[in-house]
Design a protein around this nucleic acid. Structure first.
Length: 596
RNA sequence: GGGGCGGUAGCUCAAUUGGUUAGAGUCCUGGACUGUCGAUCCAGUGGUUGCGGGUUCGAGUCCCGUCCGCCUCGCCA
């Protein structure tokens, strides 16, 4: 076999005159018949041109070269020289070519079902790309993303190693935990009827490592949550997981902000600057979401007090509800840009978030016009002042309970920014969101649920509230948000068993149940647990941002579909009866499943 | 579990109110061409219209069911 000396994508002017051996895949071929044959050869580093002189039509090299087809695997020896036909500015290797003297066909390909061209990748059916993932991954773009992912992981390891973190592995076969997402479970062969669960995160283990005196822990770790996927979510995903002892909230935020800055610098050569901090309360009130996109304005105002003075039934009905509110968003210049078609569409679309519609009004030289203008008489001046309205603006409203109206207008804010092209590409708006409530009321089940997770500590000044008014208790949790995407979330943890028991109790986990399900944690906390806290970065989402893609499947080498299948390996699949027997598992299939 | 969109040649798509032999580009096969570069030109192979039923003289097209993909609501401590 010809031994490779250079990556064909790495060849430059400096290699001119050298005899090289390159190897890779035939990206394209251009056969000129009598005379010349050009091969664009692709390897991990890029694409380079190999030329064959066809003068001696009977030579083995020429005969083999003329048989080459796209995606054949070859090696070629030749001399690097300046391109005779002039440079190709589209290629990094565009000024040079390899004049081939030897050719070795390492593997002919069958006609490829898909071709690894970036320029038509978006047109190929997603299931074909997943089915033939090995071909799809040959695309330069996919190779670039794989390397970005590697860079992120490498940078994180280096950064945290510099700061005294050590990497520790935690188990994948663990005990199922209540609360949280649905677990993936694994049957135990040795213990009939007993099951392991795959970790939703290594949360408890990393806390116990703090009790063990590790002081600073790092793990790049796979997590599993058996919930329906989304464009930015897979059932199986990766966290950069961290925990620190003897720290407060500011210590953790400073350390983790440092990683974010390092990543953006190393991967994109972007200086992030100081990362601002916003309270959960302000995020929800001003942006209607706990992970606001700060690349554009469109701030939201509560106008419930004004709305109460109108006769508009939608407002009145909303305000009559428990915690009913009316929210308003000023869209500068919206009178022109927000067409009737668009605003009608919003009213329909907003129903997916359970809001009734989107009342609209425009401010013109003649005052409020269209939509609900006729109801705004009594509050016209106050509304103009509150929203600092100018002529040509549109105001969009939502009215319902606080949680529905807030969420709806938050989603609407993002939608309007997209529709009006207000999002400036290439900008990075990172922020910390802090001061989350400890608990959220689950009205259906009439109980408190943890907003973050049950091991999150109250802020140090909030222990009274924990006893007195759990609904008002503020936690020591923090989320790192970038361009409207949550990229990390964490908290200071509870390190006192009495506080942990109290929180379990508030969550409706009684002493006995707590002992049975979390006994090992409660016990560990009794034996000298240091104050500690940590965070987990979503590696997949980080890479999505840094690589500029909005499909999580692009940043995972072998992703699953929305129904949890791997189209390449065809997992999941049935197992043998003997396997089931050994595992003491009997399958009950709802209906007859057709064999494929 | 709910909603929306889609599935026609290896790939990307077209096909009039339900009407003749389901077309085009690309890939592939063969040929032409001495500096191409998403090469070009000529010719050709290639189809169980996702699958199963139904309506009809006649179904890619209409109806029912089902499978698959994408987006989304719920869900995701």
């Amino acid at each position: 076999m010809l031994k490779r000396t250079h990556m064909c994508g790495d060849l430059r002017d400096e290699h001119i005159g050298e005899t090289v051996v390159v190897a890779g895949w035939v990206n394209t071929y251009r056969d000129q018949g009598k005379g010349l044959l050009f091969i664009d050869l692709r390897d991990r580093a890029g694409i380079g041109q190999v030329v064959f002189d066809l003068e001696d039509a009977n030579s083995d090299v020429v005969q083999a070269a003329r048989m080459l087809r796209r995606e054949d695997v070859i090696a070629a020896r030749g001399v690097v020289r300046t391109r005779v036909g002039g440079p190709n500015p589209k290629l990094a290797t565009g000024t040079i070519e390899v004049m081939a003297t030897e050719l070795e066909v390492l593997n002919k390909t069958e006609t490829p079902p898909i071709l690894p061209d970036d320029y038509e990748a978006s047109k190929i059916a997603p299931e074909k790309r997943l089915q033939y993932r090995y071909i799809d991954l040959r695309r330069p773009r996919m190779q670039q993303i794989l390397r970005t992912r590697h860079e992120v992981a490498r940078t994180a390891r280096t950064y945290f190693a510099e700061h005294g973190f050590i990497e520790v592995e935690t188990p994948c076969l663990i005990k199922t935990t209540p609360e949280g997402a649905r677990d993936f479970v694994v049957p135990s062969r040795s213990y009939p009827g007993q099951w392991y669960a795959l970790p939703q995160s290594p949360q408890i283990f990393k806390q116990i490592l703090m009790v063990s005196g590790c002081d600073r822990y790092l793990q790049i770790v796979r997590c599993f949550r058996d919930e329906d996927p989304r464009a930015d979510r897979q059932a199986e995903f990766t966290q950069i997981d961290l925990e620190m002892s003897f720290v407060d909230r500011d210590d953790v935020m400073a350390m983790m902000g440092g990683l974010a800055k390092r990543l953006w610098k190393e991967v994109l050569d972007v200086e992030l600057g100081e990362i601002p901090v916003l309270s959960y309360h302000d995020a929800m009130e001003r942006y209607g979401i706990d992970r606001p996109d700060l690349r554009f304005g469109l701030e939201i105002e509560d106008v419930s007090d004004l709305a109460a003075k109108t006769d508009f039934k939608v407002f009145q009905d909303a305000l009559a509800k428990d915690r009913g509110v009316v929210k308003a968003m000023r869209v500068p210049g919206g009178a022109e840009k927000l067409t009737r078609k668009l605003t009608d569409d919003y009213t329909k679309w907003i129903r997916t978030f359970r809001a009734g519609g989107v009342p609209v009004v425009k401010l013109t030289a003649n005052g409020f016009e269209t939509g609900i203008a006729k109801f705004l008489g009594p509050i016209a001046d106050a509304l103009r002042e509150r929203l600092e309205l100018e002529e040509g603006d549109t105001v969009l409203f939502t009215a319902d309970t606080w949680s529905i109206a807030t969420k709806a207008i938050g989603e609407l804010r993002n939608r309007v920014a997209r529709d009006l092209d207000l999002v400036e590409e290439g900008t990075w708006k990172m922020l910390w969101v802090v001061d989350f409530p400890m608990f959220e009321r689950d009205e259906d089940q009439e109980r408190w649920v943890a907003l973050h997770h049950p091991f999150t500590a109250p802020r140090t000044d909030q222990f009274d509230e924990l006893e007195r008014a759990p609904g008002e208790c503020i936690s020591a949790a923090y989320d790192l948000v970038c361009n409207g995407s949550e990229i990390a979330g964490g908290s200071i943890r509870i390190h006192r068993p009495d506080v942990q028991r109290k929180v379990f109790e508030l969550l409706g986990i009684g002493a006995e149940e707590a002992e049975q399900k979390f006994g090992f944690l409660l016990k560990a906390l009794r034996f000298g647990a240091p104050p500690h806290g940590g965070i987990a970065f979503g590696l997949d989402r980080l890479v999505m941002l840094l690589a500029g893609t909005d499909d999580i499947k692009d940043v995972i080498a072998f992703p699953k579909t929305q129904t949890g299948q791997d189209l390449m390996t065809e997992a999941p699949a049935p197992v043998d009866a003997e396997q089931l027997e050994e595992l003491h598992v009997r399958v009950v299939v709802p209906e007859v499943v057709e064999p494929v």
